[in-house]
Design a protein around this nucleic acid. Structure first.
Lengths: 205, 205
DNA sequence: ATTAAAACAGGACAATCGACCTGTTTGGAG
DNA sequence: CTCCAAACAGGTCGATTGTCCTGTTTTAAT
């Protein structure tokens, strides 16, 4: 009698769930977000949820691999490869983040950092997945520094450790910004990193 | 009949609870630690727990104000004031942390950062307390840089933003170290920060 | 000694968590 | 068309969460 026909679209359902989970995990954290809450936000029944993600940790893994990794790729790796050299890319990335946060008003922090802090002690597989995202980020940055060295744009650089410093400074600045709800830490780090890189790139050229 | 006499020692009981809570919060996180678990670790009855900390958030606030703030003071602020200048202090602090972690084997992360990431979105009062600890840390570092400038040990320095970079680099390096379970990120940041500060301090003197 | 408040014991409470169950519907392979 | 697995609906389950309650003991002030 109820003429409503159901149309199965597993990919879309799964995407809705992962999207809602990503938003909630970033905004409130992994543990603080309940499965019931995600069902409502994604408009998904308990059966569908259990079918796609039998356990919460599998949803967490999906969020890390599908969304967190992509967020890092979009905001860091791609701009890095699109710009001429590392310093201009880094400065542009910081500028984008700062203006985004200034527009939004509140600081919810770095998605990767947020999940890594909370989840790492409890689940080895998720920890390794998060570590892999960090590694990919670091390696892309390190490769760009190395390319700049090869092109004689910079000298006296240790690409690996310098990349670590940039990643750490960004993550840490985001953490402070989240705790203080201010953009100031990001501006400070942008300024200091720009000055540091400028001195290393000035010698060449 | 039971001749066992009880001796009230509220300060010691409270200290046992806060100590157990600090350890657990740092190791597994605030949300992942249950009140029941803390009662057992501190050997405290439900009544005593409720008497000293009617709600979990008050215990969280006590941990932040009594233990986290003190941890930052011990590992950062005091060495900073004891050393001659900022660069040697920072390098010494990193060395201490690195050898501690190498000895311990596992990396549980920066206590301040751990709590800040997890708790900030949920509780405004705890967020402000954590932000205050960050501010105290930053200000002590900034004051040391300023002192070095006044003593003509360094020139061309912006104490405020440089302090932010150091705090962010340390927090971020700890985060990466926690996610990857390696000390490498800390070694990298130590090396880069030492080089950066050396160049700024070389011009003077 | 009396008394009131602080300190503590032990258990109960509703609420919520994540996981799971049985049944129904859809959609593609044969 | 037949058939079966995938996709989905809706509800239930035990366990655990944080909080609170009643009663008892200790402590200190008067």
């Amino acid at each position: 009698m109820t003429g409503n026909r159901r149309t199965n679209d597993p990919q879309a359902v799964r995407r809705r769930i992962v999207d809602a989970a990503y938003d909630a995990f970033v905004a409130q954290g992994y543990l603080a977000t309940g499965m019931m809450e995600l069902r409502e936000k994604a408009s998904v029944s308990g059966g569908a949820m259990a079918h796609h993600f039998p356990a919460k940790r599998e949803l967490g893994l999906a969020v890390i691999r599908d969304r967190v990794a992509d967020a890092v790729r979009q905001t860091w790796i791609e701009p890095l490869q699109a710009c001429a050299d590392a310093p201009t890319a880094i400065d542009l990335i910081f500028e984008n983040i700062i203006s985004d946060l200034s527009r939004k008003g509140s600081v919810s922090g770095c998605p990767l950092n947020n999940m890594a802090m909370e989840v790492s002690p409890h689940d080895e597989e998720m920890r390794e997945a998060l570590s892999g995202v960090f590694t990919g980020w670091h390696d892309a940055l390190s490769a760009k520094f190395q390319a700049d060295v090869d092109l004689k744009r910079a000298i006296g650089i240790d690409p690996g450790s310098l990349a670590t410093l940039v990643v750490a400074a960004y993550s840490g600045a985001m953490a402070i910004a989240k705790a203080s709800q201010e953009v100031r830490p990001l501006r400070d780090c942008r300024q200091e990193l720009a000055a540091l890189l400028a001195s290393k790139y000035a010698l060449a050229g």
